[in-house]
Nucleic acid binder design. Structure first.
Length: 271
DNA sequence: CACGAGACCTGTTCGC
DNA sequence: TGCGAACAGGTCTCGT
């Protein structure tokens, strides 16, 4: 599920709350539960879980696909991986299947991490960089310019799609948005990165920002049983559209494997 | 350095 | 209808 737009949407909802639940900024933690031990990333934080009690959530944000909860003297970091989801419900509500971890607040609500496939991870750390340090720039970062992006591409010989999925190069793009961005930029997913001109790199960066922004404006994408609430899945131009006509030229969209990932593109428009 | 395979997991969908 | 295979929004590690 969660690529940058989905994580951004979740962070915003948790920060601001909704009609039925309050925002979490300012809420004091009084207890926590871990029901699948591997959900807590190594190394096990010193004093966990007692140290969480009494801490207040001061801010909620995102870096790449990581959710960040700034506490009084530590940061709680959560990565949803493939099937993770967050929800806020009253403490007395019975746990659901696949609830792996939750925080209980004095206000009577709890923040629950639900994760069917158990790939998701939670960190509690005083040193965020130990978790986030290897991430490349955020796609929306002002420090990421057409020129620096072009330098990232020309500095290596690699198929462009796996490169876009490499979080150490640029942080936040996943399988859906990579396919959508490459289509909009007219670039074949297997094209080698160093063959992309400066002009085309600028177009690709603009396409990446455009699809991520569209995703955010639509509250992310919901597919199958994973993630709900988003609407971007109705605006896919190539993803999950194998055999359907390309919106530009009508050619049937093709699906292949690139770097072990399902990859959708128009064989005529993308070169 | 770049790539592929395998691992980590469960649930859903596909193909025979 | 049933059953195993294939596949899924992600990332890490290992071997070549």
């Amino acid at each position: 599920m969660p690529e940058l737009p989905e994580v951004e949407t979740i962070a915003r909802i948790l920060r601001e709350g909704s009609a039925s639940v309050p925002g979490l900024v300012g809420q004091e933690i009084c207890a926590c539960q871990l029901t699948w031990h591997k959900t807590l990333a190594e190394p096990i934080p010193e004093g966990f879980p007692e140290r969480l009690a009494g801490q207040v959530i001061r801010q909620i944000g995102r870096r790449g696909k990581y959710l960040l909860f700034e506490l009084d003297d530590q940061t709680l970091i959560i990565h949803l991986r493939m099937s993770g989801d967050m929800r806020v419900v009253p403490v007395e509500e019975a746990p659901a299947v696949h609830d792996r971890f939750w925080l209980e607040f004095r206000s009577g609500f709890k923040l629950v991490f639900n994760d069917a496939r158990k790939f998701g991870r939670v960190w509690l750390t005083s040193d965020r960089e130990s978790v986030l340090g290897k991430l490349g720039p955020d796609p929306f970062s002002e420090s990421l310019t057409a020129a620096s992006f072009h330098a990232l591409l020309s500095g290596r010989k690699r198929s462009i799609k796996p490169l876009l999925l490499d979080q150490s190069i640029i942080a936040g793009i996943g399988n859906i948005y990579a396919d959508e961005a490459l289509f909009r930029a007219g670039i074949h997913p297997q094209r080698l990165s160093h063959t992309i001109s400066k002009h085309l790199a600028a177009e690709l960066l603009a396409a990446i920002r455009e699809v991520l922004q569209l995703g955010i404006e639509n509250n992310g994408a919901s597919i199958d049983w994973v993630y709900r609430g988003g609407g971007f899945q109705n605006k896919f131009l190539v993803y999950a559209r194998e055999g359907q006509p390309c919106p530009n030229c009508g050619t049937a969209i093709v699906k292949i494997k690139v770097g072990q990932r399902g990859t959708h593109f128009c064989p005529r428009c993308q070169i």
